[in-house]
């Protein structure tokens, strides 16, 4: 299935885009998605705390992803 991910902060710079599309296997877990993303974009690994929200709620590593899900990647931000 094809999913779309919206990126914020430094993740946007790492993707080179606000949105990316990814072809993944059906019903994979968030933990696997994180691994796939790090494989494709190694710089994400250095962020250490990589938060993923599904349908406007923080997702756990065990949550499953569905094709219709709205997925957001939220990295830590420090400026002030």
């Amino acid at each position: 299935m094809k999913i779309q991910i919206e990126a914020f902060g430094i993740a946007k710079d790492i993707f080179g885009n606000k949105y990316i599309e990814l072809e993944i296997e059906d019903s994979i877990k968030v933990a696997v998605l994180k691994e796939l993303l790090i494989l494709k974009y190694p710089a994400l690994k250095d962020l250490r705390s990589l938060a993923i929200a599904i349908n406007e709620s923080y997702a756990n590593d065990q949550d499953e992803i569905k094709e219709t899900d709205e997925i957001v990647l939220i990295p830590p931000v420090s400026g002030g």
Binding site: I10, D46, L47, R48, S49, A51, S78, G79, G80
Partner: peptide
Amino acid sequence: DLFPVPPAAGTVQDCAEGGVLGVLP
């Protein structure tokens, strides 16, 4: 609970490095 551990030093830019639009803060 949002970010259990900080990012590796130097990976996330601050305003001095990444810049910031004045009206945003």
